[in-house]
């Protein structure tokens, strides 16, 4: 038992040490998005630990956390992890009441609305950046548009937009009617586009575009309609590369195409967004199952992210996540 404790305490620090060494070793080398530098598997899972871990929150991060759950079970752990998906906001609501141990989030916790409730219930938490998503704006394959500036994005999706033809967005664009397909208002993807990209005070997008909670519907809509445009997480684009055409985004520094690399290095702005898990500190220190799951999750982050088709973190962000995890309860 004592040996176990020592080993568990040692793991994060060893991992952090290894991290620093790898960082130093491969400063400028090209990153292989699939391998990552670390976070692929040399964590020694303690299969004797039993217990329950309750996770809820964002449906965007859900596939990532279920991948962690599946991988840990495949490695022989008996820890019982349940993963809900009541949305980022719904997740924080129960997380701040202390009903869940970990909350998935596709945006940071809101300081004015959600954080005070956590504080009121004395729930202390740690935010861990686990993956990156690149919101991908796609159009019909035959549309002769390749790149949009951020202003053109706002003109296209903003709540005040009245544009019905591509040449109203930019005179150089073809004379083709616009048909929009956007995620439902409950999704974090919609929120991110509305609040962080378009940035209108109303935090909404235009209402005359067709919307669906199921991204597959958006894929079919855009690929089947001439002049069709839509946006969703990078995963859905990746699975439908042959049907859709992704648009590059010009944020003042030239057109940048969405890809794992540009999302990782931050150049795909402003559409690359971080995905988080929030860990309840008390659960982490008091419940061995929560601690083991969190440690395993972060140690195997690259495998989990690529397995669930997310974009793995770059070295710098990964090192930060590891040090934040190591800091819990110390």
């Amino acid at each position: 038992m004592k040996l176990n404790t020592i080993r568990r305490a040692a793991v994060p620090s060893i991992a952090a040490l290894a991290m620093t060494m790898t960082l130093a070793a491969c400063g400028d080398s090209e990153d292989d998005p699939n391998a990552g530098t670390d976070g692929s598997g040399d964590y020694s899972l303690d299969t004797s630990i039993e217990g329950e871990v309750a996770v809820d929150g964002s449906s965007t991060v859900y596939p990532m956390t279920t991948a962690a759950q599946e991988l840990m079970a495949a490695d022989g752990s008996a820890i019982q992890v349940s993963v809900g998906q009541s949305g980022t906001g719904g997740g924080f609501e129960v997380f701040c009441k202390g009903e869940t141990d970990i909350s998935d989030a596709s945006r940071p916790i809101k300081d004015d609305e959600e954080a005070p409730i956590c504080a009121e219930n004395k729930v202390e938490y740690t935010e861990l950046h686990v993956a990156t998503d690149a919101l991908t704006v796609v159009v019909h394959k035959d549309l002769a548009v390749d790149c949009l500036t951020v202003d053109e994005l706002i003109a296209l999706f903003g709540p005040k937009s009245k544009a019905t033809n591509w040449n109203e967005i930019n005179p150089e664009f073809p004379d083709q009617a616009i048909t929009g397909f956007i995620p439902g208002t409950d999704s974090g993807t919609y929120d991110y586009m509305a609040a962080d990209v378009v940035g209108d005070d109303s935090e909404t997008l235009r209402k005359d575009f067709e919307s669906s909670e199921d991204d597959n519907v958006l894929v079919n809509g855009v690929s089947g309609t001439e002049g069709g445009v839509g946006f969703f997480g990078y995963t859905y684009y990746e699975q439908n590369v042959d049907k859709l055409k992704p648009l590059s985004i010009d944020n003042g520094a030239g057109c940048v195409a969405p890809s794992a690399e540009t999302a990782r290095d931050g150049s795909y702005a402003p559409l690359a967004r971080p995905l988080f898990i929030y860990v309840n500190n008390a659960s982490y220190t008091d419940k061995p199952a929560v601690k083991e799951f969190s440690n395993y999750y972060i140690a195997n982050l690259a495998d989990i992210a690529t397995g669930a088709q997310f974009i793995a973190l770059n070295d710098e962000d990964y090192a930060e996540t590891q040090s934040k995890l190591a800091a819990i309860g110390s």
Binding site: G41, E70, L71, A73, A74, D303, T306, G307
Partner: peptide, 23 residues
């Protein structure tokens, strides 16, 4: 149980001693 790992990724992970049928 539900398994969501992309088949090629599962193959890669299986190289380190895991069974691809459970991933």
């Amino acid at each position: 149980f539900t398994q969501t790992f992309d088949p090629t990724q599962a193959e890669r992970l299986a190289a380190s001693g895991r069974d691809p049928k459970v991933l």
